[in-house]
């Protein structure tokens, strides 16, 4: 059984990346796992680095 989708939040601005939704405007399709996103990804709202996101439950 596939793992459930997770959500990740930017520590600077609160932007939420939801794996189920992806972020099509950033070229990240629905279903894209956080671990598969390139390391140079930056928060689309504020530019914070991928390393400064936390996994959250909502």
């Amino acid at each position: 059984m596939s793992e459930t989708f997770k959500t990740w939040q930017c520590r600077t601005c609160g932007y939420i990346y939801d794996e189920a939704m992806g972020e099509p405007d950033e070229g990240l399709p629905a279903g894209m796992r956080w671990g598969d996103i390139p390391a140079d990804f930056r928060c689309p709202l504020c530019g914070t680095a991928k390393t400064d996101f936390d996994m959250i439950e909502i």
Binding site: T12, C13, D25, P44, L45, C46, G47
Partner: peptide, 11 residues
């Protein structure tokens, strides 16, 4: 991708 809210730490 407007900048009306600013960008970076001061967003």
């Amino acid at each position: 991708k407007h900048v009306a809210f600013g960008y970076g730490a001061h967003i």
